[in-house]
Design a protein around this nucleic acid. Structure first.
Lengths: 149, 149
DNA sequence: TCCATATCAATGTATATACACTTAATGTTA
DNA sequence: TAACATTAAGTGTATATACATTGATATGGA
C-alpha cells in the first residue's frame, strides 16, 4: 500500500521527505511484525538481535562493546539487555581474565535452541519475498547504503 | 557505508534478510539524526510528527484518533503525546460538542512558530539529497510500498 | 425504549530507552 | 612510578513505549 494511504497524507514536500517518512514507517511495520512473533518466546527484538550476534560468534565469546558495535540499534543499553538474557539463561557472562574490564558473553545451548525455534517463525521475511524479487531487494539495499553516504 | 560494515556482519542469510536489517538500521540512523536536531527545542520526534499533522489540518482541529491514523508510529500513545504538547502550549484541546467522546486538537500560534524554526533545521533531509538523485529516491519509495504489499 | 456492542480517549503498569554519570581496570607519559 | 587519560561496563533517572483495561458516550437492533 502506498505510503500516502498508510498515513493519510496526500502530498509531501519532496520525494526526499517522503523517502525519510517511508523508511521510518516501513521500519516500524517490520518491528511490529517481529515483536508479535517474538512475544510468545518472551524476548524483545533487541534481545533477539543480541542472540543472533552471539550465535554468529558461537562457540566463541565476545565482549559487551563488541556486541554493541554489531547491533542494529547502537543506542540501546547493551549491559541491561545482556543481563536480561542471562536471567533467562539464554547466554552466559564471564569476566575476561586478560582484561578484567571486559566481560565475555556467550550464547548457551538453551539460547541456541530458542533461536532455532524462533528463526523458523521469523521467516516473516517470507512476506517481503512474496512481494519483491531478489533483484528489487538488492536495489533497495544498494540505494539505502548509498543514501547514508 | 555498506550495511555489512555498519554492523560488522559480513554475510546475510539472504538478500531479503539483509533488506529488513538495512531498513531497521537506516530508520534508526534517521531517528537519531532528528532526535539530535529536535532536542534543543524540547520535543521528541513523535511530538514533532504530531505537530506536523496538526499543521497540515490547521486551522481546522482533528480528533485524537485521526491524529493516530496519520502517525508514522501507530503504536505510540497519542493521548499522552497530545497532553505533553498541550503542557508546552503548542496545541490546544477541546472536547467535541457533537460527539462528547471525541477531543478536538488544534495547533496554536506558538506551535506553528516552533515548527517554522525547526523545519528550517530539519533540512536534515538535505543529507539524503546529497547522496541520492530524485529518481533514486522515487525508486526506493516505490519498492518500499510494493514490499509492504 | 432497553440492552448489547462499538467507539473514543485516558490511564495503569511493566518494560524499554536515552543519556549522563560512576566505578574499575588499563594505558600513557613525564 | 605517580599522575592523568582512556576504556569497558554498569547504574540512576527521567521519559517513552507497548499493551491491557477502564470509563464515558454513542449506535443499532429487538
Amino acid at each position: 500500500m502506498k505510503i500516502e494511504e498508510e498515513i493519510k497524507q496526500d502530498k509531501f514536500h519532496s520525494e526526499y521527505q517522503k523517502l525519510a517518512i517511508n523508511i521510518l514507517f516501513t521500519s516500524n511495520w517490520l518491528s511490529a511484525n517481529s515483536t508479535k512473533i517474538l512475544k510468545p518466546y518472551g524476548i524483545s527484538p533487541q534481545q533477539y538481535n543480541v542472540l543472533r550476534i552471539l550465535k554468529g560468534q558461537s562457540p566463541k565469546a565476545i565482549s559487551v562493546s563488541n556486541i554493541m558495535e554489531r547491533m542494529i540499534d547502537k543506542m540501546s543499553n547493551t549491559s541491561r539487555l545482556v543481563e536480561k538474557l542471562r536471567q533467562k539463561e539464554l547466554i552466559e557472562r564471564v569476566t575476561c581474565e586478560s582484561d578484567r574490564r571486559q566481560v565475555d558473553v556467550k550464547i548457551t545451548h538453551k539460547g541456541l535452541a530458542l533461536l532455532e525455534k524462533v528463526n523458523k517463525e521469523m521467516n516473516a521475511f517470507k512476506n517481503i519475498a512474496d512481494n519483491l524479487s531478489e533483484q528489487e531487494a538488492k536495489t533497495i539495499n544498494q540505494l539505502l547504503d548509498k543514501m547514508r553516504g
